[in-house]
Amino acid sequence: MEVTKQSVSGTLESSDIMITIEKSTIGNQIELNSTVEKQFGDSIRKTINTTLREFEINNAKVGAIDKGALDCIIIARLKAAIYHSVSDEDKQSEVFKA
C-alpha cells in the first residue's frame, strides 16, 4: 500500500499512543518517543515494522509518542493512521480486518 497523505491517530493519554504517518522517500522510518523506552522501545519498533510489512508499506515516516500503550493499542492506532493515509480503494483491503 502507498501512503498518500499525512494522518494522525491516538491521544497522549496514559495507556495510549499517538501515531503520525506520512509519505517518505527513503524507505520506512520510525521515530519513537516512549515513556517505556528502556523496557519496551525495541518491542514497539518491532510491532510497528511488522504492521507496516503486513500492509506492504515501504515508504512511510512513522512518528509515535507512546504513553505506555499495549501492543494491541499500538497496532490499532497504527492501522487507523494507515487507513486514513491510503487511497479509498486501499481502504477496502481485508488486511485492515486481519
Binding site: V36, Q39, S43, L70
Partner: peptide, 9 residues
C-alpha cells in the same frame, strides 16, 4: 501476556 516481557534494565 498483556505487556510482553520487559527488557532487563
Amino acid at each position: 501476556t498483556m505487556t510482553g516481557i520487559p527488557k532487563a534494565i
